[in-house]
Design a binder for these strands. Structure first.
Lengths: 111, 111
DNA sequence: TGCGTGTATGTCGAAATTGACATACGTTGC
DNA sequence: GCAACGTATGTCAATTTCGACATACACGCA
């Protein structure tokens, strides 16, 4: 969990798939990190979609703008709890959160 | 976040659906709690399925039997992080975890 | 009955996460 | 230029969560 932080710093904002091999992450470690990053990205999207600022969201969470920035930025100091709570707060349902967690390979029916 | 703990203490080990109304939980609060309980239950199932004891799992997590008991028991002191990490450790994939998070209304195709 | 195994519960110091604050960065409009 | 706004980053004391330990409970078996 210490090494993981470095990696995030350098890899911030990418697909983490490579980082796993780049540094020796166990499967569950890397899956966990990927999950968090996916959630973080989604939070930012949703917040903006709803026309909220980080400060707005912070108030709803009774937290601070700086923490929201860290949540969205995938900061190492942010727990999954806070991440998920934030998503619920911006209005996602369990189902929607689940979809984000499931990951990309979501197959879409062709029109 | 303070009140929520009380509730959990009293409600420990049930379906939380009612508790939401029983005590005045916000929607996202109750959804969050339900998620955690669903995950906790699932962890116990999976662990047993794999023929592991709590001690076994604890070692894999480099944690202790008592903490595993708390995780599975839905103890208030357990973070979502630890819960999800445990599930990954017993072998669940992101997809499978997502399913648990999504919740019950899972429609099953008739044979 | 006592013993071994698996699980639950309470407590505690240590470690991680938190909100808050200061402050820097970047953009937009004046 | 420089405000104003939104966002990022670093720090820190307070709170939460952690692993660990002790201990109690529940069961099956000799």
């Amino acid at each position: 969990m210490k090494a993981a932080k470095r990696k995030r710093l350098e890899a911030d904002g990418w697909i983490v798939g490579d980082v796993k091999t780049f540094l020796g992450l166990s499967d569950s470690e890397s899956e966990f990190i990927e999950m968090k990053l996916a959630l973080a990205e989604n939070l930012k999207q949703r917040r903006i979609q709803r026309g909220m600022t980080q400060k707005d969201l912070a108030e709803r969470l009774s937290s601070s703008q700086s923490r929201v920035a860290k949540i969205e930025g995938g900061d190492e100091s942010v727990s999954l709890d806070l991440l998920v709570r934030s998503l619920l707060t911006v209005g996602l349902t369990r189902r929607e959160i689940a979809k984000v967690i499931a990951g990309k390979p979501r197959r879409r029916a062709a029109s």
